[in-house]
Write a protein that binds this DNA or RNA. Structure first.
Length: 627
DNA sequence: AATCTCCACA
């Protein structure tokens, strides 16, 4: 590295002696080295020092840029090359440029480059032709791509792979499969592409069938299958496959593998495995690239370790909008609204431009922190200063912000003024406000909107039934429960996970399928008794009325998060922090119960629910009961 | 030249 820098300095400062080597030769070496070190910006720097770059220098630069997805920069340089008039681009130039056009979906540049390819007579070059086929697939023009493919006189395996992955990216999986089944020869890339294609279309069975048939699987095949599981929310399967991969010495996980698995860990809250991967990265001295650093930092954040998430973020050599969004969202999820806000401003200072997802983070930070006016202010900043068109998600967040604070009129006005059609989630956020502030008239109106959009919305039926019960209108409540049954409204089953000894255990409400079920339930009885002695009273008001009080308590005590915590208590050492992830929002009763449990067993309980973290410690929750 | 990767409301 130091040698390279010295060479570079030498190249810039000293004019070449009369019969010294051509500066282009030195520059090309440096550019290629920079590209190999994944440092395309350095390549561009070296190139800019050249006073008269030759074609090889141009081509190395364009290759370095397009290889590392700096497509806009590559195209800018291509335009500069054309404007200069010389040297004339050759087949290598076009290969890089077509890749950049495909990556950027820059149709006009792509067609211009295609026309130049024809006038310069490079259309029969295999590399150029393959790139053209790929580009037209990326442009969503499979018929043009196919025509170019069919016209090719010689085709190699790359041409066929381009066809397979092209049809996959256009969503025509059956055509891709037809090509895959008939292609004259297959490389590892063919198998990976087909696995990924099936997985992206959601057909994991077909993906797995192709995966199992590939004998000598490359890392790419493993990655395609692991990421397929992760993308389809089969996180446990992704992790299980990763464990199998580790047992095969022929294949070693690479950065892509680790990023996929870290994402699965983040979703499941599998901190042990996440930590193990962190150690693996350190042992291999892999260095934190943007992808890897982001995935690692997000894993720690989603597993409840904000400090570790931050320390990964601090160690990263480069940070992009994703890195900052992760840190901001992490602060939001843990209820540290001030940290989220200060992070956001540091991000602006460092010159990274926020995107729609960053604003989701900052808005949800304000929501969870109850910072209503600040939230509204950031919402304005997003639309006016950064000209980001708010999506329905952003409206959902702001409606939630206003509704929780009891500003229901403003929330409803906002929904009525939306540019996009409100969805169930937006109305649901307002319904939540109606529930908290007991605004029954508005609630009925909101439920009508929701049921129009989703006649099977269980939350609406539960809400109305509870409202009617609380008003003493028991017949109406019964009518609604009947309607629920008739329309076969199903509530999403509550589900919680806990990781113990590197294994993720899953619990549904009332679940008795766990091998240690008996121990778990006896732990729950013991806890219930101790909790009552400690003065805890179950909040039974949200349980359906048709059963008696004692039965209600039983229903509550079988909520999935309680099962997971009970299992954590019997299977971990005294004093260990219990970490549980839940798919839905934690219910009121469980929230109170967790506070008491954390006190009587002297354990910290970290519970991640659908929208945020709750840290229970010594009878208190970090959310300060605002959630 | 072709495959696989990170962040989001309820």
């Amino acid at each position: 590295m130091r040698q390279l820098l010295q060479l570079h300095a030498h190249l810039i400062t000293s004019p070449p002696p009369p019969d010294a080597v051509d500066p282009n030769v030195v520059a090309v070496k440096l550019i290629c080295a920079a590209a190999a070190r994944s440092n395309p910006r350095h390549a561009a720097l070296v190139f800019s020092a050249l006073s008269a770059p030759n074609l090889v220098a141009w081509n190395s630069l364009l290759r370095a840029l397009s290889l590392h997805h700096l497509h806009p920069v590559a195209l800018r340089h291509f335009h500069r090359l054309l404007a200069a008039g010389s040297p004339l681009p050759d087949e290598f130039t076009f290969t890089s440029v077509l890749k950049a056009c495909a990556g950027l979906l820059s149709r006009s540049d792509g067609e211009m480059a295609h026309a130049l390819v024809l006038t310069r007579g490079f259309e029969s070059n295999l590399f150029v032709r393959n790139s053209l086929v790929d580009m037209y697939f990326k442009f969503g023009r499979p018929d043009d791509a196919r025509r170019l493919f069919d016209e090719m006189i010689t085709k190699d395996v790359v041409s066929w792979n381009t066809l397979v992955s092209g049809y996959c990216s256009c969503g025509d999986i059956s055509m891709a499969r037809k090509v895959f089944d008939r292609m004259p020869e297959r490389s590892m890339v063919s198998w990976s592409a087909m696995i990924a294609g099936h997985a992206r279309s959601g057909d994991l069975g077909a993906a797995r069938e192709v995966f199992d048939r590939a004998n000598e699987k490359s890392v790419g095949c493993w990655n395609a299958m692991i990421s397929g599981y992760a993308q389809n929310e089969k996180f446990s399967e992704a992790i299980a496959l990763f464990r199998r991969m580790l047992q095969i010495p022929m294949v070693q996980p690479n950065e892509v593998t680790l990023v996929c698995v870290l994402s699965a860990c983040a979703h499941l809250g599998a901190l042990d495995l996440g930590r193990w991967i962190d150690g693996f990265i350190k042992r291999r001295a892999m260095g934190l690239s943007l992808f890897l650093g982001n995935a690692l930092s997000d894993m720690y954040a989603k597993c409840g370790c904000v400090a570790e998430a931050r320390s990964v973020f601090d160690k990263m050599a480069e940070r992009d909008v994703v890195s900052w969004s992760i840190i901001i969202t992490a602060s939001a999820m843990h209820g540290h609204a001030e940290d989220a806000i200060s992070g956001f401003h540091r991000m602006l200072e460092s010159g990274v431009k926020p995107n729609d997802i960053t604003f989701m983070g900052i808005l949800s930070a304000c929501t969870h922190g109850g910072l209503v006016d600040a939230g509204l202010c950031y919402f304005d900043m997003m639309t006016e200063e950064f000209e980001i068109i708010p999506k329905v998600e952003h409206y959902g967040c702001v409606v939630d912000l206003l509704s929780r604070a009891g500003r229901l009129d403003e929330a409803e006005d906002l929904i009525n003024s939306m540019q996009v059609a409100p969805n169930v989630i937006v109305w649901g956020a307002l319904l939540g406000g109606c529930r908290i502030y007991k605004d029954i008239n508005r609630g009925e109106r909101v439920v009508q909107h929701i049921l129009e959009l989703d006649p099977g919305h269980s939350g609406s039926y539960v809400y109305l039934a509870n409202v009617y019960v609380s008003m003493g209108r028991l017949e109406d409540a019964a009518k609604f429960r009947l309607m629920m049954r008739e329309k076969r409204v199903v509530k999403t089953p509550g589900c919680s996970w806990i990781e113990v000894d590197n294994m993720v255990h899953e619990f549904f409400m009332g679940d008795r399928s766990h091998p240690q079920s008996e121990k778990i339930y006896s732990m729950i009885s013991t806890l219930s008794l101790r909790m009552k002695l400690a003065g805890y009273v179950p909040i039974t008001s949200l349980v359906s009325q048709s059963i008696d009080e004692e039965e209600k308590e039983n229903v509550l005590s079988m909520h999935s998060e309680k099962l997971a915590v009970a299992f954590g208590l019997i299977s971990t050492k005294d004093g260990t922090t219990i970490r549980v992830v839940k798919n839905l929002r934690v219910c009121n009763d469980c929230h109170e119960a967790m506070k008491v449990i954390s006190r009587i067993v002297s354990r910290e309980i970290v519970l991640r629910d659908r929208s945020r973290f709750h840290h229970f410690k010594e009878g208190q929750c970090s959310c300060k009961d605002y959630w």
